[in-house]
Every structure is written in C-alpha cells, then in structure tokens.
Amino acid sequence: DTINITLPDGKTLTLTVTPEFTVKELAEEIARRLGLSPEDIKDTHNGKTLDPSLTLAEYGITPGSTITLEIK
C-alpha cells in the first residue's frame, strides 16, 4: 500500500507502508530518503501534527492518503 508525502517544495514522494507503521517509522523512512534527520521532520494530516507513537491506522491514514511534510 502506498501513501503520498507532500514535500515543502510541492513535490510528492510516494512511500510503501502498512497501516501498522508508526508515525515515527514513517518519519525515519522519509528522513532516510531525503537525507535528513528524523527529528527534523514534522508530519501533518488534515491540519493536525501527528504523534510519533501512534500508527497510521490510528489516524485513519489509508492507501492513497496524503501527508504533508514540514521541515523543523
């Protein structure tokens, strides 16, 4: 299953994830792909900052969802 990550420059990154991924694991994968530190990444969905300890499923993030990435 894939989700879309909207980057600060407007580009989109597509990642393969499972509903059990935590937001922290997602940030780590994004950081790895972009050459950043996971601590520099802030993920938001529907205007809410995502708690790193919760899973994508707990936020109702499903395949095809879009998450907005902010760099701290």
Rank of each mutant, 00 (worst) to 15 (best):
E70Q: 08
K24V: 04
A31I: 06
L36W: 11
E39T: 14
R32P: 01
I67G: 00
L50N: 02
T66E: 07
P63T: 09
I5K: 09
K11W: 11
D1R: 05
T62E: 11
P38I: 15
S53A: 09
E70Y: 04
T66I: 07
V17A: 02
S53Y: 08
T12F: 10
L15G: 00
A31G: 09
V17N: 00
T22K: 04
A57Q: 10
E70H: 12
I41V: 08
K42A: 13
K24Q: 10
D9M: 05
D40M: 13
L13F: 12
N46L: 12
D1K: 06
L7G: 03
D51N: 10
E39D: 11
L7C: 09
P63Q: 05
I5F: 03
A27E: 05
I5V: 13
T16D: 10
S65K: 04
L56T: 01
I67N: 01
G47P: 04
K48W: 05
N46K: 09
L15I: 14
L50T: 03
E28M: 12
G35W: 03
K11V: 11
P52G: 14
V17P: 01
P38M: 12
E20K: 08
T18Q: 05
A31N: 04
E25L: 06
P19L: 07
L50W: 14
G60C: 07
E29A: 13
S65N: 05
T12L: 10
K42T: 13
T55W: 01
P8E: 06
S65M: 14
I67R: 00
R33F: 13
T18H: 12
L54R: 14
N46S: 13
T16R: 08
T22L: 04
S37A: 11
D51Y: 04
G60H: 03
L26K: 00
T68M: 14
T6N: 14
L15C: 06
I41P: 02
P8K: 09
L50Y: 10
E25H: 10
P38H: 08
E70G: 08
V23L: 12
L50E: 02
A57S: 09
R33W: 15
T68F: 14
F21A: 07
I5W: 00
L36G: 07
G10H: 04
T55E: 01
T68S: 12
R32T: 07
D9H: 10
